[in-house]
Computed example of a mutant assay.
Amino acid sequence: MTACKGPDSPLAQLQRWYRTPLGAELARLECACVQRLLHDTFGYYLVQVGVTESFRDALATSRIRYRIAMPCDPPPLARPPAIVGLASQLPLASDSIDALFLPHTLDFAPEPRAVLREAERILIPEGRIIIFGFNAISPWGVRSLLRGARGPAPWCGHFRTAYQMEAWLSDLGFALERREFLMFRPPLTRALGPRGARVEALGQRLMPALGGVYVLRAVKRVSTLTPLRPSWRRRRQLLPGRVEPTTRRGGHV
């Protein structure tokens, strides 16, 4: 994780920040967005890695049959069904997940590209990945620079651009399906009133790339002569007795 100030993990700090007025407004926008992006996504398994509390109700509306969390809290605080592990070494079988949701997980991961490699490994062909990230070229990114890496979450995260993340996804064979931007209000509590709502509407219309959060949905493409179709007649194994080793890393948690 990044060098955020505080005794607990940055993602645990981010979970608490979501309970503040500014964080709650962002959570409202992000929950509506992830519901929209999952509306036409089907399958057996949806896995969410990172902050889980703020999105529990939003993911409950998904048409994917099983929804599994890998929370940022230690095991005693995690609510079932939950899996404990590292985002860069996911304890899941290869080609077993239909959709993966990373809400700001990459903003605080010490090895974000390793997390994306694991995402590519566990997703089935044509599986979807949804990424929320704080946008470096926005007022939120400016505030992050002013606060510095030693401040609290979310400002201590590594803000990036949507285009950098898209390049990383492309390198792994993902094809971008959707790009959106959220939260055009400045990162100030006083911006939550009616004037802030007008700023939000103007930003979406006039400066769509300057939102405080970027949202990406991409699909895992696999080059093959025969189209690969997921089998709906039998349930795939998510946690086999012996987790398959990855060729990209030494092992799994």
Rank of each mutant, 00 (worst) to 15 (best):
R36M: 13
L37E: 15
T41R: 15
G43P: 06
G43W: 00
Y44C: 14
Y45L: 02
L46S: 03
V49R: 01
G50N: 07
G50S: 13
V51H: 03
E53R: 08
S54C: 12
F55R: 01
R56T: 12
D57A: 15
A58K: 01
A58I: 04
L59H: 04
S62T: 07
R65Y: 14
R67E: 06
R67L: 10
R67S: 12
M70V: 05
M70C: 02
M70K: 00
P71H: 08
C72H: 03
C72N: 04
D73S: 14
P74V: 09
P75V: 11
P76G: 04
A78T: 06
A78V: 04
R79P: 10
P80K: 08
V84L: 11
G85A: 08
L86R: 13
L86S: 08
A87G: 12
Q89R: 05
L90Q: 02
L90D: 00
P91L: 00
P91K: 00
L92T: 02
L92N: 03
L92H: 04
S94T: 11
S94G: 12
D95I: 10
D95G: 09
S96F: 04
S96Y: 05
I97W: 03
I97L: 10
D98I: 05
A99Q: 10
A99M: 14
A99W: 03
L100T: 04
F101S: 04
F101L: 11
F101A: 05
